[in-house]
Amino acid sequence: MACYISLVFLLGFPAVYSGSHTLKYYITMLSTAYPGLPQYSVIAYVDDVRYGRYNSDTRHAEFLIQSLMVFSEHSEGLNKQAQLIETMQKAIMNFIMDSSNMTYDINYVFQIQAACVLHEDGTVDVYEEGALDGKQLVVFDKETVEFVPVTREAVLLAQWVNKQAFAKKYKILMENRCTQHLTLYLPYIKSYLDEKVPRVKLSSSESESGTKLHCRVYGFYPRDVEVKWIKNGRDEIHSEEAAQILPNPDGTYQIRVSVGVTPEGGATYSCHIDHSSLENPLVVLFETETKNSNITYILIAVGVIVLFLAFGLGFFIQRKMKGFKDSQQSASTNEQETALQENIL
């Protein structure tokens, strides 16, 4: 069942543009109780930072970031909101089971992703989509204010949900309560993260199509960043691959920008990073692996030569010392033999 629980998280929301902020809820409902897992659970994120959770075992909304503990006095309101949504999700789960003649002997997983997006100009967008065992069923249409079936099997579910006015309740909830919480929590989450300076790692790879240079920028916050490759300090190299800004578990972000190049003698390549945490754009020069390899080989060769000379010199000295000792022993033996002969005579 763990695979089903992770599958739905592959479903994504539309891109969030610069200056916008998002509050997202990941909701999981099991058809029956399962050992070690709450039957109902919610995980909440602001701009990809996990800040809160709720489940049917504790029935208590909990903050996961210390700076948000100042809002603990309105936790009762959060609990009521979470319990209301839990009741709605249970009703939807029961309808899915009954209308599809599913047996309760098998545990099915119904999940929802819901989000409100507050844009820089003050406008609000809301999104929601539901899936069963990782297969998308319905999506929320903000224009018609109704849930639209994605598959033929979900037609009855969409009709029933719309009849219950869940779509209108959801729209009101997300456009008001969700954006209120987003506006309230965002400054505290920002102070928790502060502005984190990006770190950079450059690398290259070879293929049949040629050489690719990779600029990986990671560990930065806020999300917005500009990363580009520059040739000879002035010419921008455009990437044929779409670079995506991805979240890290600690709330920071990462991105990798790759470009194809044709190596030229004397040409230089550098990665330029512009981020709000930097006073000036960061420029990192790419050093070719050939230069590094040549230096390595030279150092290895010099080391081998030095070792060989040291060994040869030691061997030479040893041979000389042995020859000197042999000559001394030979001279001493000759003197003894001469003295012995003189005594005999």
Rank of each mutant, 00 (worst) to 15 (best):
Asp121Ile: 13
Phe147Ile: 01
Lys80Val: 07
Thr333Met: 03
Ile305Lys: 11
Leu307Tyr: 00
Ile230Lys: 06
Cys116Gln: 06
Gln39Gly: 09
Glu153Phe: 13
Thr123Lys: 11
Gln83Gly: 07
Leu23Cys: 11
Glu195Ser: 02
Tyr127Ala: 02
Leu68Lys: 05
Thr144Val: 09
Met102Gly: 14
Leu340Lys: 04
Val284Ser: 11
Ala2Thr: 09
Gln159Thr: 14
Ile300Ala: 13
Asn280Phe: 14
Thr87Arg: 02
Leu157Glu: 14
Ser205Ile: 10
Leu23His: 14
His119Cys: 05
Arg177Asn: 12
Val304Gln: 10
Lys135Asn: 00
Thr262Ala: 08
Ile27Asp: 02
Phe316Arg: 14
Gln254Leu: 11
Ser41Asn: 07
Arg199Leu: 13
Ile65Val: 15
Asp105Arg: 07
Ala131Thr: 02
Thr144His: 03
Asn176Trp: 07
Lys90Gln: 14
Val302Ala: 10
Asp98Glu: 05
Thr123Met: 07
Ser20His: 11
Ile245Ala: 00
Glu241Phe: 07
Ile245Asn: 08
Ser72Cys: 03
Gln111Asp: 12
Glu279Tyr: 06
Ser6Lys: 08
Arg319Leu: 15
Asp57Gln: 12
Pro222Thr: 04
Leu213Met: 12
Ser207Gly: 09
Ile85Thr: 00
Leu182Ala: 02
Lys228Ile: 11
Ile92Pro: 04
Phe71Lys: 13
Ile298Met: 08
Ser75Met: 07
Ser205Cys: 13
Ile27Val: 09
Phe110His: 09
Glu73Tyr: 08
Glu226Asn: 06
Tyr170Asn: 04
Phe316Tyr: 15
Tyr25Thr: 00
Lys80Ala: 01
Ala242Val: 11
Glu236Pro: 03
Thr151Val: 09
Tyr170Phe: 15
Tyr218Phe: 14
Ala331Lys: 03
Ile237Cys: 03
Ile112Phe: 13
Ile317Thr: 06
Lys169Ala: 09
Arg152Gly: 12
Leu246Asn: 11
Thr87Cys: 12
Arg50Thr: 08
Gly314Thr: 06
Phe95Trp: 03
Glu146Val: 07
Gln136Trp: 08
Ser209Trp: 11
Tyr127Gly: 00
Thr290Lys: 06
Asn107Glu: 00
Tyr170Lys: 07
Asp125Val: 02
Phe220Ile: 02
Glu73Thr: 09
Gln81Ser: 12
Gly130Arg: 04
Phe9Gly: 02
Lys171Ile: 09
Lys190His: 15
Lys322Thr: 12
Leu23Ile: 15
Met88Val: 15
Pro198Tyr: 09
Gly219Ser: 13
Tyr45Ala: 04
Cys116Asp: 14
Cys215Arg: 07
Leu173Ser: 07
Glu129Leu: 10
Ile27Phe: 15
Ala61Ile: 01
Pro222Cys: 05
Tyr40Thr: 03
Thr288Ile: 01
Val16Phe: 08
Val225Gly: 05
Ala82Asp: 04
Tyr34Ser: 10
Gln113Asn: 05
Glu342Trp: 13
Thr28Pro: 03
Lys168Cys: 06
Leu156Gly: 15
Asp274Gly: 03
Gly323Tyr: 10
Tyr269His: 09
Leu186Tyr: 09
Val284His: 09
Ser330Gly: 02
Asn294Ser: 08
Gly12Pro: 03
Thr28Ile: 05
Leu246Glu: 14
Tyr253Val: 06
Val259Asp: 13
Tyr170Arg: 06
Pro249Asn: 06
Gln328Gly: 00
Arg177Phe: 11
Val259Gln: 12
His214Gln: 14
Glu335Cys: 11
Glu146His: 07
Leu282Cys: 13
